[in-house]
């Protein structure tokens, strides 16, 4: 393994142990994507030969790719971890969906609100997330330990300086933290690590012929019959893959021939667009990620 990956790995493991030692009820959020897969793998290593002393939780918007849900079950079986799946039932009842409600409302209700509900329901005081600082400009200043008040809100001025590896983990009743153990990893680090450690990932990351339609300049996969087609529109089979995974109607595929990890790493090196470009939710408005964060988005 590259020396720098080993150091990133050690740093992430130390952060996870820290949270396990300092908080009474942590949870690891599992989004099924590549970053989550790496984070879960690191958690398995951090507490070896024991198991991670916290459950994993997926906030399911009900619009994930079918292959993601299948992969989720497979992983839970394989690692034998305790997996909580939370769905915002209220949102489901209200018929919230990414197509007619719009991406903002859907993400807010099914993801942000769903997450808050789940954190409150189980009383988690710390939640691990797989966000990285290189993903987006406003994340460059995000702390590894990100403090949220009792309403889960993030206040940029209320965040604490992080000196050395001495994290200030003290919180008051009702407050919680989000912890980002892979903050310092880049997208390329993630792929190189997946390759080096042979970490299983959802097959959607690899190029394959898939049925897609062109929407807002990006390829959207027709994963099930819920995606309404325009009159006369028919899905075409294209060799595509995904750089990030989310709700399928909001996640653009890229045309690619990268069918192996080697191919992906090579493609990464040549990549000329950032991974979030494929996400429709981020381009809604400028600095939109920061607004979502203030509202409690991960």
């Amino acid at each position: 393994m590259h020396a720098h990956l080993k150091r990133l790995e050690a740093e992430s493991i130390a952060i996870m142990r820290e949270v396990a030692a300092e908080f009474s009820n942590p949870v690891m959020l599992y989004s099924i994507g590549k970053d989550s897969s790496v984070m879960m793998h690191l958690a398995m290593k951090a507490f070896y030969p024991g198991k991670p002393p916290f459950p994993f939780m997926h906030v399911d918007t009900t619009w994930k790719f079918k292959e993601m849900i299948a992969f989720r079950s497979e992983m839970a079986k394989r690692y034998g971890f305790d997996l909580i799946v939370h769905i915002n039932e209220d949102g489901v009842r209200r018929g919230i969906n990414p197509i007619t409600s719009g991406s903002q409302v859907h993400t807010n209700v099914m993801k942000t609100e769903g997450l808050k509900q789940a954190l409150d329901k189980y009383g988690f005081d710390a939640a691990f997330g797989g966000a990285r600082r290189d993903e987006e400009k406003s994340r460059a200043k995000e702390r590894i330990f990100s403090f949220r008040n009792a309403n889960h809100a993030w206040d940029p001025r209320g965040q604490r300086p992080e000196l050395w590896n001495l994290f200030n983990t003290r919180i008051k009743q009702g407050e919680s933290i989000r912890v980002f153990p892979i903050s310092n990893w880049t997208e390329l680090d993630i792929w190189q690590y997946i390759e080096a450690e042979n970490i299983p990932i959802v097959p959607l990351y690899f190029a394959k012929e898939r049925p897609v339609v062109k929407r807002s300049g990006t390829w959207i996969m027709v994963d099930d019959e819920r995606l309404p087609l325009e009159p006369g529109e028919t899905p075409e089979m294209k060799l595509v893959r995904f750089r990030t995974l989310g709700c399928y109607p909001l996640t653009g595929a890229i045309e690619s021939e990268a069918a192996t990890l080697d191919d992906i790493v090579e493609e990464m090196m040549l990549a000329r667009t950032s991974e979030r470009q494929g996400r429709l939710i981020d381009s809604d408005e400028s600095a939109s990620m920061e607004k979502k964060k203030r509202e409690g988005y991960f």
Partner: peptide, 23 residues
């Protein structure tokens, strides 16, 4: 490329620690 949060960008001054990555 490297100035950060919305308000700071307007002010044209960085007032926190931002972490950047390259290889």
């Amino acid at each position: 490329l490297v100035d950060g949060l919305e308000a700071e960008r307007e002010q044209g001054i960085t007032i926190d620690v931002a972490y950047r990555f390259f290889a």
